[in-house]
Design a protein around this nucleic acid. Structure first.
Lengths: 125, 125
DNA sequence: CAGGATCCGAGCGGATACTG
DNA sequence: CAGTATCCGCTCGGATCCTG
C-alpha cells in the first residue's frame, strides 16, 4: 500500500477504525495480556504472575472480553483442582504484529519524549 | 529484526513499552488528533470541526499533552482575532506509521470480531 | 478565536471477601 | 485453582460559563 493510500485511509476512516481499536485494546491491561499470551498457552494464575499488578478481577474481566472478541480461547479441564488454560486464537495472534510495531515506537522514542517533557515542565516552572 | 527477536522484545519489555505507549495514546482522543493533524497544520477550531464529538476541554488538554511530549508544535500568531496553529513535529509524524498499522488491523478484523461477539452473546442468552 | 475554570456523572479499576 | 460479588475511590471526560 502506497503512502498516499495510507494517508487517505487514516484520514477518511480514522475515526471509526482508531476508535474501534482503542475501544478494544486501549484499556490498561488488554494489550499486555495479549502480549503475555503470545506463543504459549497459560493458566489463570500463571498469567497473573506474569503481569505484575493486575488484579484477579481485571484479569478475569479482560479475558472474558478477549474471549468474546474471538481473540482468546478458554479451555476448562474437568479436574480437581480445576485447570483453565487460555490461548491466543489465530485472530488474536494477528494483533501481535501491530502491537510490536507500537511497542518498538515507544521504545525508540521514549527517551526523547521524556526529555521533551522535562524541558516543557522547566519552561512552565 | 527477526520474528524471534520480536518475540523476545514483546516478552521481555512488554510491560514497560506497552504501558508507556498506552499511557501516551491509549485515551479517547489523542491518536485521533494525531491522525487528523497528519500532513497539515491546523487551527484549534478547524481541528475541532474535523474531530466530531470532541469537547473544547479535551481538545485543549490533549494538545497540551502532545506538545509536552514533543509530538506537536503550537504556534500562536500575534493577531486579532488570535490565530493558533498546531502541527505534527517530525517525531509526531513517526507515530503515523504504527497508527496506520493498528487502524488497518481494526478495519480488517472488525467484521469477524463483531460476529464473534454476537455468537458469544447468543451462547450466554 | 482560543482556551481556562468549574461542576458533575459515569465507569474503570483496586481491595477485600467469599465460593465451587 | 479459578474465579464471582461487593464496595468504593478516582480519574476521564462532557457541559457550561467565562475571558483575553
Amino acid at each position: 500500500m502506497s503512502q498516499y493510500e495510507k494517508t487517505c485511509l487514516i484520514r477518511a476512516d480514522a475515526g471509526r477504525a482508531i476508535r474501534a481499536i482503542l475501544d478494544r485494546i486501549g484499556d490498561k491491561w488488554t494489550l499486555l495480556i495479549v502480549a503475555t499470551l503470545h506463543g504459549r498457552r497459560m493458566r489463570f494464575t500463571e498469567l497473573q504472575r506474569h503481569i505484575p499488578g493486575i488484579s484477579q478481577r481485571m484479569l478475569s474481566l479482560n479475558l472474558r472480553h478477549l474471549e468474546r472478541d474471538g481473540l482468546v480461547t478458554r479451555t476448562a479441564h474437568a479436574e480437581v483442582p480445576p485447570r483453565v488454560e487460555y490461548e491466543l486464537t489465530e485472530r488474536g495472534q494477528t494483533l501481535i504484529g501491530p502491537a510490536v510495531t507500537l511497542a518498538e515506537w515507544a521504545i525508540e522514542h521514549n527517551p526523547d519524549i521524556a526529555e521533551s517533557q522535562q524541558a516543557y515542565d522547566a519552561r512552565q516552572a
